[in-house]
């Protein structure tokens, strides 16, 4: 014990700072859980998706500095987690999936206690505890003992303790686990507000795709400890293979032959031609900055073929892909 009191957020509390992970490898005993994971997060809400056992919670624990890194580098909020994990944790909030409620304390007592452990003075911690419990909707129940809380109230309490010291980043592990639809919607509403309006970075680990769609602007997909994909939730897919819906009239045979020269695969869906293009093979297919692929390159290529073959297009658009479709496509390979 060095008796050091870690000073937490200055008045700029909540200011964003990036998370940078490079070649992170980690394992328990003989089993490697994460294999060379690399990514950078600048802020906002990011979903961490993956099947059970894919390494989501382990990745969050690495970001929190709760486990010693074996290889690679993790930098969170400007702190190197191999050397400065303790200092970094003063700026991080953690909402665990299991447990996380210490019995024998009232709701406000628990939140204030954890605030003090985060380096807050006792008076500040108590005042903040009241504020965040009010924010998460537990103002009326704050003096009840934690062990008497319902599952929904416990989830809110866990969110409150993660917020009490005003972290820059929130790491949420299955925050809607065990909640009824109304409770789930309320928690998601709070998370969206924190990420969207209050300037907190949020990493949301879950296997519920609907939660991610409701809150996050982009997702990281993990499978067997490897980062499989990173893409935006709003439909701007970053995958190289993308499907375009085409409808038109004219010399269809010439048009299809032209598409074949692009390496496209074409199938028919009623009146629509479904053209699957590999954007990696197209000029300008890769997005600027090398961050994924640009669907505009695909539509541009199809337009050129149509113009060259005299095929009049009535409809051309990239087929919207649901997050669930993308996720299962990615995870199932």
């Amino acid at each position: 014990m060095d008796g050091t009191v870690v000073k937490v957020n200055p008045a700029t509390g909540g200011a964003r700072a990036a998370i940078r992970v490079a070649d992170l490898t980690f394992g328990y005993t003989r089993r490697t859980v994460l294999h060379g994971v690399s990514f950078t997060l600048e802020g906002g809400a990011v979903g961490l998706l993956g099947p059970n056992g894919s390494g989501k919670t382990t990745l969050l624990r690495c970001l929190l500095g709760q486990v010693p890194l074996q290889a690679g580098r993790v930098e969170v909020a400007g702190f190197d987690m191999a050397r400065q994990a303790r200092r970094a944790r003063a700026r991080l909030g953690w909402m665990p999936e299991r447990g996380g409620v210490i019995p024998g304390m009232s709701g406000v007592g628990l939140v204030a206690y954890l605030g003090e452990l985060a380096g807050m003075p006792a008076r500040d911690a108590m005042q903040r505890a009241h504020e965040v419990l009010h924010y998460v909707g537990l103002a009326d129940e704050r003096y009840r003992m934690c062990e008497d809380y319902s599952q929904g109230m416990k989830q809110r309490l866990k969110l409150a303790q993660a917020l009490v010291h005003d972290p820059a980043w929130l790491f949420l592990d299955e925050p809607t686990s065990g909640l009824d639809p109304r409770g789930r919607a309320a928690i998601l509403e709070l998370i969206a507000d924190l990420a969207g309006n209050k300037g907190l970075g949020v990493v949301l680990s879950t296997h519920l795709l609907a939660d991610v769609e409701a809150v996050c602007r982009e997702i990281l997909v993990l499978r067997e400890g490897r980062l499989l994909a990173r893409q935006e939730v709003d439909g701007k897919a970053r995958q190289p293979r993308q499907v375009f819906e085409v409808e038109g009239f004219g010399d269809e045979a010439a048009f299809l032959a032209g598409l074949e020269q692009l390496g496209a695969e074409v199938t028919r869906d009623n009146r629509l031609q479904l053209v699957t293009l590999d954007l990696a093979r197209l000029d300008g297919g890769e997005a600027v900055g090398g961050d994924g692929f640009d669907p505009a390159a695909g539509t541009g290529a199809i337009l050129e073929v149509a113009a060259a073959t005299g095929f009049a297009l009535r409809r051309l658009r990239r087929r919207p892909v649901t997050l669930a479709e993308e996720f299962y496509t990615l995870v199932e390979g």
Partner: peptide
């Protein structure tokens, strides 16, 4: 956001 009061933390 929290604005520290300047009191000393334990």
């Amino acid at each position: 956001h929290w604005r520290p009061s300047g009191l000393k933390a334990l």
